[in-house]
């Protein structure tokens, strides 16, 4: 793609980084899945691209910052969106931050997630690689959490759903992701729940109950398996 270079290659597609319409941008392209019938494949891809875009817009309406969308192109199976230049993925930030700072960040993560769920947005792939911290002053400095804005990205597996069940699963996915990448996962997750409670007060109890159910099911599965 002209003006772009390959940035990431994932299981579902490729991400290019470059300049689009004069702005720093990423182009997120989804692979053709050869084992599917071509018509079905393009239909499913189109639906995925739509739901990714829909969640990004829905977050914006709810006051949650997400990348700006520049072009959604079904033919090229690509979304062109804003690239956050002065950003670090939360995973890398946590790796070098103090426990005190991590705890504050976790509270923020929980708060944004609570707000997302309160607006019926299920992220579907909550990992610390799918969250960015963007420097608000346009500098490449990530030492002060107060200068950083937390932004969720990668809504490729998201959907709109108000049920507590799906929200509980979302939390469970996050817990598992934390456990697999961070040594202090349980402290982080406890703070996430604290933040979550602040922004999704009315839904918290039910979601937490669902989360525990899903967690218990997960334990049983790993014990049997």
């Amino acid at each position: 793609m002209e003006g772009f270079e390959l940035f990431r290659q994932g299981a579902e597609g490729r991400i290019f980084k470059g300049v689009y319409l004069g702005k720093p941008a990423i182009a997120k392209e989804r692979f053709v899945k050869k084992y599917r019938h071509p018509d079905l494949d393009s239909h499913l891809t189109k639906e995925r691209i739509k739901s990714e875009s829909r969640s990004i817009i829905r977050c914006k309406s709810a006051g949650i910052r997400t990348p700006a969308l520049y072009l959604v192109d079904f033919n090229r199976r690509t979304i062109f969106m804003e690239y956050f230049e002065n950003s670090i993925v939360v995973k890398d930030f946590i790796a070098q931050a103090s426990n005190e700072v991590i705890s504050k960040l976790a509270l923020k993560i929980g708060a944004v997630l609570g707000k997302m769920h309160a607006n019926s947005i299920i992220h579907g792939d909550l990992t610390t690689s799918n969250m960015l911290l963007v420097n608000k002053n346009g500098q490449k400095s990530y030492s002060n959490l107060q200068d950083l804005e937390l932004i969720f990205i990668d809504f490729g597996l998201s959907h709109v759903e108000s049920s507590a069940e799906d929200k509980g699963v979302d939390l469970y996915v996050l817990e598992r992701a934390l456990i697999s990448t961070h040594s202090t996962a349980s402290e982080i997750f406890d703070q996430v729940l604290e933040g979550y409670k602040l922004e999704n007060k009315s839904g918290f109890k039910e979601v937490l109950a669902k989360f525990k159910e899903v967690q218990a099911r997960g334990r049983k599965r790993t014990m049997v398996g």
Binding site: K60, S61, Y70
Partner: peptide, 17 residues
């Protein structure tokens, strides 16, 4: 929304979709 995204970002994202 006005409080978080810049208005240009909000506008172009809607046009795109």
């Amino acid at each position: 929304e006005g409080a978080t995204s810049t208005i240009v970002d909000s506008v172009v994202s809607r046009i795109a979709t």
